[in-house]
Design a protein around this nucleic acid. Structure first.
Length: 227
DNA sequence: GCGACAG
DNA sequence: ATCTTGTCGC
């Protein structure tokens, strides 16, 4: 049965995070990576309709092999620290619809770089029992010093004396991105994989493609129907 | 109590 | 996140 977090109160959501967290496994992924996925959500401001999508790419060539999108309704609001309760249900449906489950999935948001180590990538990885990586565009928790300006340089994002993410400069003269493991993968592997996914833009290809894809789906759906 | 705060 | 064209800067 599909996930339904719609009628949860924030404190109930936090309780679920603390429960799920006990199953977290950040040991190195043994399997060789042949495919990688990118997941994202798009929606119209003030609307509860969300468009969730996942793009599967060949790795390391990054050629797209499959795309899947679903339209869903989300009642849960955006609350910093509880993003997963708003987006994971819809993303799970897109995941189930995939013909090819990627070896690892990159989500638009944090993995363990979260106040309770339960960012959206970690949450999704625990619920779906699959390897995930979080790649966020801004920080939610922790402190860091700016990485050098050379592409590929990085520093540590630290929270309560723990390294919770790598602050990575993907391109010259752009803000860094925050890479952290979600579940079933290590911090070092997460960083290595994301580095191999950087091409011409600041955002690594998996999430960049997913972002473009869900936006296209949203506009297409709005013109076909009217909502 | 005050400030911060993924998408 | 989303609404949006041109434009300043490396």
């Amino acid at each position: 049965m599909p996930l339904d977090y719609n009628h949860l109160t924030p404190s109930e959501a936090v309780a679920i995070q603390k429960e799920l967290r006990q199953q977290l496994d950040l040991s190195p992924l043994q399997k060789e990576i042949t495919t990688i996925g990118g997941a994202d959500i798009s929606f119209n401001k003030y609307s509860t309709t969300v468009y969730a999508g996942i793009v599967v790419l060949q790795f390391p060539s990054l050629q797209v092999v499959e795309t899947k999108a679903v339209v869903d309704i989300t009642e849960f609001p955006y609350i910093p620290g509880l993003l997963a309760f708003r987006e994971v249900p819809a993303l799970s449906k897109a995941w189930e619809a995939l013909t090819t489950k990627p070896d690892v999935l990159v989500l638009d948001g944090h993995g363990i770089a979260h106040p309770r180590r339960m960012g959206i990538a970690t949450h999704f990885g625990l619920v779906m029992q699959t390897p995930t990586i979080g790649c966020a565009k801004s920080v939610l928790a922790g402190k860091y010093t700016d990485p050098h300006k050379e592409p590929g340089s990085y520093t540590d994002l630290i929270h309560h004396n723990e390294v919770i993410a790598k602050v990575l400069r993907t391109k010259r003269n752009v803000k860094p991105v925050f890479v952290s493991p979600g579940n079933l993968i290590s911090m070092q592997q997460s960083l290595d994989i994301i580095l191999q996914c950087v091409r011409k833009y600041r955002i690594p290809e998996p999430t960049r493609f997913a972002h473009n894809f869900v936006n296209e789906e949203r506009r297409k759906y709005m013109s076909e129907v009217g909502k």
